Amino acid sequence: MSFIRTLQGDICPEQLGFTYAHEHIVCRPPYWLEKGEDDLLLDDQQKSERDVFDFKRHGGKAIVDATAVDYGRDVQAVKQIADQTGVYIIGTAGFNKSFLWQARLPDRLKLIIGDYSTFEEWIDQSSINALTEFVVREVEEGLEGTPYKGGQVKFGTGYNSITPLEEKTIRAVARAHHETKAPIHSHTEMGTMALEQIEILRSENVEPSYVSFGHMDRNPDPYYHEQIAKTGAYLCFDGIGKIKYAPESTRIDLILQLVQKGYEDQILISGDTARKSYYKHYGHGLGLAYIISKWVPRFIDEAERRGFDGETLVKKFFVANPARCFAFKK
């Protein structure tokens, strides 16, 4: 029997509904806080909540909050938003990428993790098994000492590289996956290193079909996407609305090329809305409603012009595929 673990508790996969696969809702990343990058601090619970309500008003049911421990989670605030809006929110255990680990470890985390000066020192001085135990606790007991449990485990790597400490966290997350059966999410910087990550996961006996790879549209390479899809992994196109990286026509074409090759059951969609300027109620940006209200109708139109059933594909990308991808399979 499978289930999906949300901040509100465990639910049946059929309950999940229309889902964004990778977002950030309330977070104050220590690295960006130290750099004074205010745009990267989602630090107003009420403004974030208004955007989640916008998503709900257009038919949205669930959001995966991909904010790991090193990205300044506010678990209590996100849980309150889930309760206020009625939108299911999946929390994330695990880690992000290594440059973020240069930041000082916040005092609140020292009470949970130990008296290390930085995230990097913690990861460097801990064994893989100790890091695994931390991730398992976050899935089985609660995120950062709260009673609200993580619904996926995450790791990340940098641009065209995997550092020794990043490999260490990949192995810790892989082992936590085996112990908890939690689904895995990968941060790939600029969409790179997914195949190399898969090699490490396979050395830990992890099946790629349990993994979703983020930021695939940041590397608009159809051949590369096909190689990842062949492993059975999920590909997350989570840069919707970010025209500075590529027009929507490029993303839609990449997605439809995968559909044409038979991989429509492995595609996830989201916006990775991690800046004030992307949110409507912070910076007058496109907001969390953009994908469901504007992008989906465009995708359906473009898909049908090319002979595909756009409505069916949308149901797969936002309902059926997330219900499978984010399920714990006992």
Rank of each mutant, 00 (worst) to 15 (best):
G114C: 09
G232D: 15
F119R: 09
V135M: 05
T188F: 15
P222M: 13
E264A: 05
K97R: 09
G94R: 06
F299N: 07
R251H: 07
R306G: 11
I269F: 00
E302A: 01
Y279N: 05
Y279D: 01
I267E: 05
A68G: 02
L40Q: 00
Y71S: 15
P147C: 05
P222N: 07
E138F: 07
Y234D: 02
F318G: 01
I90L: 00
K315M: 04
G145Y: 11
A82K: 12
I112K: 09
R251W: 08
L16I: 11
V75M: 08
H24V: 00
D115H: 14
Y148V: 00
E144F: 12
V211H: 14
D10K: 15
K230L: 02
V26P: 01
E204M: 03
F99T: 11
Y234H: 03
I300C: 02
P222W: 01
S161G: 07
F317D: 02
T92G: 04
H178R: 11
G59P: 00
Y159I: 08
K315V: 05
L256N: 08
A93P: 03
D265R: 12
Y88M: 12
N129L: 15
Y278E: 00
G241F: 03
I170P: 02
D74M: 03
G262R: 05
T19I: 09
V296H: 05
W32K: 03
V26I: 03
I300G: 01
N321W: 08
D83V: 13
E166W: 05
T157C: 00
L105D: 04
K330H: 02
I228S: 14
G60F: 03
E199L: 12
H58Y: 04
F317P: 03
E166Y: 10
E166V: 06
K315F: 02
H187V: 14
E167Y: 10
E49R: 03
V135F: 06
R218I: 11
E133S: 14
L100Y: 08
K110L: 12
A303L: 12
F326C: 10
Q125W: 08
Y116C: 06
A182W: 01
I252C: 07
V211M: 08
C325S: 01
F299W: 07
V206S: 13
R137M: 13
T231W: 04
A66V: 09
F3V: 14
S186H: 06
N321D: 02
E302M: 08
N129S: 13
S270V: 06
I252D: 12
L288E: 06
Q46S: 14
F55Q: 00
Y263C: 12
G94C: 00
H284R: 13
